[in-house]
Amino acid sequence: MNELENCRKEIDEIDQQLIELFERRMNVAAKVAEYKAENNLPIYNGERESQVISNNVHRLKDDRYEILARRFFIGIMELSRELQKEVIKRLK
């Protein structure tokens, strides 16, 4: 196997882990939506989202990825909000 094939194999393994973690995160986001619906809380909490993004960006070991990590978590937060909207809509 050449270097490119080895890298692709490693990426495939990482992607498998990422999708498992993504699904786990979305399951928890759905529970958050249920709580928010029961307690009449808004879906969007800008302060919380900023905190989550900042905390995760600060976990980076390589600062070169800061902008990409920030974009990654912004995307995850957007997807979480979309899911929460769907969950709350189904609960009504």
Rank of each mutant, 00 (worst) to 15 (best):
D63S: 15
D12L: 04
E38L: 10
L18S: 12
G46L: 06
N40Q: 10
D63K: 15
E5P: 00
V87P: 01
A37K: 14
P42D: 08
I74F: 07
S54I: 03
D15L: 14
E5V: 06
E13G: 01
H58Y: 09
V28P: 02
E13R: 15
R48L: 13
S50E: 15
S54P: 00
R59Y: 10
G75M: 09
A69C: 12
N6I: 09
I53M: 09
K85M: 05
N56D: 09
L21R: 10
Q51N: 12
L60M: 10
L60G: 03
E3N: 08
R25G: 01
N6G: 08
E82F: 05
E20Y: 02
V52Y: 11
P42K: 08
D15I: 05
K9E: 12
C7S: 10
E13W: 10
E49W: 04
E38K: 15
E66L: 08
V57H: 13
L4R: 15
N2K: 13
A33V: 01
I11C: 03
Y44G: 02
I53N: 06
Q51L: 09
R71N: 13
R81D: 03
D12V: 06
A29Q: 07
N45V: 05
K36T: 00
E20H: 10
E23I: 08
Q16H: 12
I19M: 14
F72G: 07
N56M: 13
H58G: 04
N6P: 00
D63T: 05
L68H: 13
N45R: 06
N40F: 05
Q51V: 01
A30V: 02
A29L: 07
N56P: 00
V32Y: 01
N27M: 05
E47A: 09
R81P: 00
M26F: 02
D12E: 14
I43M: 07
L79E: 01
L60Y: 10
S50Y: 04
D15T: 07
N39Q: 06
Q84D: 02
P42C: 06
Y44I: 11
